[in-house]
Design a protein around this nucleic acid. Structure first.
Lengths: 249, 249
DNA sequence: ACCTGAACACCGTTCAAGT
DNA sequence: ACCTGAACACCGTTCAAGT
């Protein structure tokens, strides 16, 4: 029976107070996470599989399952380690600005690791977050209450901001770079849209969609502009205004 | 060389004006989509694979690739057919209300099919949408312009609303039902959180997260409440206000 | 006490050949 | 003109055994 795979190695295990019995461990949580980062950096995020990671470490695939519960557990541990290192927001005094700053910090930390997209939406993800990430959640909910929200409104506000943030990261992570010089696999496939093709209307009659037809090929360029923070501010202001109105009656 | 797999069968093919040569087609786009819907309804969305779908139709796996370009193309066709049937929003006269109504209609149509989550974020998804879905995009962008937005602001507004909507659908689709009577696979696994366990703080010191500690176990119940439409209204109002302020200087 | 080969039960996609 | 078996190149996960 393996020891609990999702818990970090107990200190006693790494600094044994007495001689251990049996085989020494072939690897550790730290080595596994380091190897995973190496694979991601060297071969790309798509190449990080349980089998590949084991091969990278020179251990049997099965052995990995003594240190991580499953693939998802590996990913959550990797992300928690990443937020541990990168999520240190500067927090303004004003509660409204604090909500925005905390959300932007969370967004930037997650968006910097495209593979985060794969686990952002898994069940109970929020509850599996490590302390640095939970601190940001705490910051947002507490600031919303400080601004005048009820506890319930504050939780709803966080959740709405979270949906927006997750959606932005997910869509962006899967949107291939459309710069003209970006050479993509499949870019020259006969069916693939090229620079000369219209963005909308592959077989659609655009005469009944005049606004989209007018935007036309400018859509991808407009969509590529980063308006996350500015729309977030609008969202937070709108949510605060609505919450205040709801409290009034 | 197969004919273009992503285009619907030409009418001439289904009603041949003269005798065809060669083998008659073993299946059609319509039969494939109908079989896919059957597999989803009967076996669940996770079970819809290219191989299973071919087996369901009684044809070789390879044959399917004459009718769909790849798995993603199958999914997009399936979703376009779904929106074709379900996306018929009632549109109010007021532009602001029209943006909200169109976004809610789009949300409800997509949220009703949990498997939509898998393709919502694929590259160029918006451009591959069918006419009913594009009509909703048109509605939102046009209404934003009617409300006073520039074309650019209107596109950005749509995109922000889209991120929020996609995030909501994705997170909800992957959040398992937490009602006490919901029996889940793995629910009795030793490591899985039970009703008695705290929601937050699996190994985290909650004393430094007082607000989350105070919310505690009530979080999942609060998170389960549907506030999509109400937060959407706040978002749209906030975006309109900000766009107006930006135009002022 | 810890590690592992081999197997289970699958995937999406493509090639070279049928019919 | 249309269809297909077989293969390619993989997956995550688990079992019954090693050492």
């Amino acid at each position: 029976m393996p020891r609990d795979a999702s818990t970090p190695d107990a200190p006693a295990r790494r600094n044994p107070p007495r001689a251990r019995t049996g085989r020494p461990p072939a690897t550790s949580r730290e080595e596994i996470l380091a190897a995973a980062r190496l694979v991601i950096e060297r071969d790309g995020w798509e190449r990080l599989t349980v089998r590949r990671l084991a091969a990278e470490l020179g251990i049997g695939t099965t052995t990995l399952y003594h240190h991580v519960r499953d693939r998802e557990d590996l990913l959550v541990q990797l992300l928690n380690e990443h937020t541990d290192r990168t999520l240190r927001p500067d927090l303004p005094d004003d509660p409204r600005d604090r909500v925005v700053a905390a959300a932007v910090a969370m967004h930037d930390s997650l968006a910097a690791w495209p593979w985060a997209a794969e686990i952002l939406t898994t069940d109970g993800f929020l509850a599996r977050l490590g302390e640095p990430a939970l601190r940001v959640v705490e910051t947002i909910v507490a600031a919303a209450i400080e601004h005048g929200c009820t506890e319930e409104q504050a939780v709803h506000l966080f959740r709405s901001v979270w949906y927006y943030t997750v959606g932005e990261i997910l869509v962006r992570a899967r949107t291939r770079d459309r710069r003209p010089d970006a050479l993509q696999p499949g870019a020259l496939r006969p069916g693939a849209p090229g620079p000369g093709d219209p963005f909308f209307g592959d077989g659609v009659d655009m005469s009944r969609l005049p606004t989209l037809a007018a935007v036309g090929d400018r859509w991808p360029a407009l969509a590529a502009q980063d308006t996350y923070a500015s729309a977030l501010e609008a969202f937070v202001d709108g949510l605060f205004a609505r919450a205040a109105a709801d409290r009034q009656g």
